[in-house]
């Protein structure tokens, strides 16, 4: 009994319903982006609710663009953009894109594995709304996004040291700043 158990009151047997469509889509993706796709994890072989496509950073933006606009995919809704820290495993981070297709009511997950110090291309050109989510990943995990126009901290103070959601960051501790953040007129140019 784990995530692959179909629960009628919680989505039901959608893995069974979407199985054929998923394998078709993944085959199409692999044929088109053979060099950029590392591997795919499909339920029920892996303990996940929807298929996971692991891609290389250099191919990420073109794959996301393809998945957003290509007929048959139409994952037009960036449901979530976040990251997972696998410290002390290598590669350390996974950047996770949860996509949803409003037309087909399907979901899929795209992941990029990166190590400390490596950067991920920004998805702002595909979804302008990825801006804040990428800033949050930078703030919380310290993963840089190449091509992001304004990669500042978002939840924490701009003077904060460290990236709180890293596994080697302590749960408790204080950093106190007696003055508030100032208005930045340069952002209004």
């Amino acid at each position: 009994m784990d995530v692959r158990t179909p629960i009628p009151t919680n989505g039901g047997d959608w893995q069974g319903r979407f199985k054929d469509g998923w394998s078709e889509q993944l085959a199409q993706l692999k044929a088109r982006f053979a060099a950029d796709i590392v591997e795919t994890h499909v339920p029920p072989e892996y303990a996940t609710d929807v298929p996971i496509v692991f891609v290389r950073p250099q191919g990420l933006v073109s794959i996301l663009k393809f998945m957003r606009s290509e007929p048959g995919f139409e994952y037009g809704f960036l449901a979530d953009l976040t990251a997972v820290d696998h410290h002390p495993d290598e590669p350390r981070f996974e950047v996770v894109y949860n996509l949803y297709s409003l037309a087909r009511k399907w979901r899929i997950r795209v992941k990029v594995r990166v190590n400390e110090g490596e950067s991920v291309p920004s998805a702002i050109t595909v979804w302008p709304g990825a801006n804040w989510a990428e800033r949050e990943v930078w703030d919380m995990f310290g993963i840089k996004f190449a091509g992001h126009p304004d990669l500042r901290r978002i939840l924490m103070d701009e003077r904060w040291e460290g990236h709180p959601l890293r596994k080697d960051y302590p749960l408790r501790g204080y950093q106190i700043y007696p003055t508030p953040e100032q208005v930045k007129p340069e952002l209004l140019e």
Partner: peptide, 9 residues
């Protein structure tokens, strides 16, 4: 909780 991952919305 068994290993696995899910996005539930």
């Amino acid at each position: 909780v068994p290993a696995g991952e899910a996005y539930t919305c």
